[in-house]
Amino acid sequence: MNMKHIARARILAGVLTTLALTGFLAAAEALDTQLAADTDLSGYWQVELRGIQTESNADKPVPYMEIAYMWMIQGPDNVLRGYLTFGDSGGGPVKKTGDVESQDVMGYAGIKATGLVTASRFWLMGHALSHPDLPPLDPNVVIIVDDFLYHAVMAWGVTGFEDMIVGKFHYMIFEGIPAKNSIGNENYTGIMGTFRAYKIGEIEDVDY
């Protein structure tokens, strides 16, 4: 290696070091602790979830990827309240009204969530009970609920970016069959991984 190559290597190393330091400083500024009051997570969010999905009766876990949606309202006490909706079906309870012929969806299909906005971080938990095969309501028919799903979600993430939060999540789905002695044989689903959420809209006229 002659002096020319050494000089080029030094220049390249200098450029790379400058780039790395610039990126590090930018990231450090973004991740720096800040007052929770400076962060407002109220709004509509699109959430990209990636990880693994494992089921109690399956042989091995499978990759998991889902687009979820959530809306949250951040109160003056830095507490978040809102709903999570996984995929098209909602993954949560859907209430219906009307007679058999016109079963309109009443309310919001989703998982009720509560969260905290702390210094540059946020925490979220959500739980919901759903009955996936519930028949349409009929005033003259007694409905026997023969299965249910209990959803439990917990997540935490970093809020320092502009209209974006990233973090980790745990999502468990417990299946139960009331009035049947089947404990231990039901199918349970566990999902864990990372998520990225983008704010896609603001919530106007929030009344605390």
Partner: peptide, 17 residues
């Protein structure tokens, strides 16, 4: 409340599920 799946243990706790 929790379960086992594929060698992992999953637990979730709160004051009354």
């Amino acid at each position: 409340e929790g379960f086992t799946a594929n060698g992992r243990i999953w637990l979730y706790a709160s004051e009354g599920l």
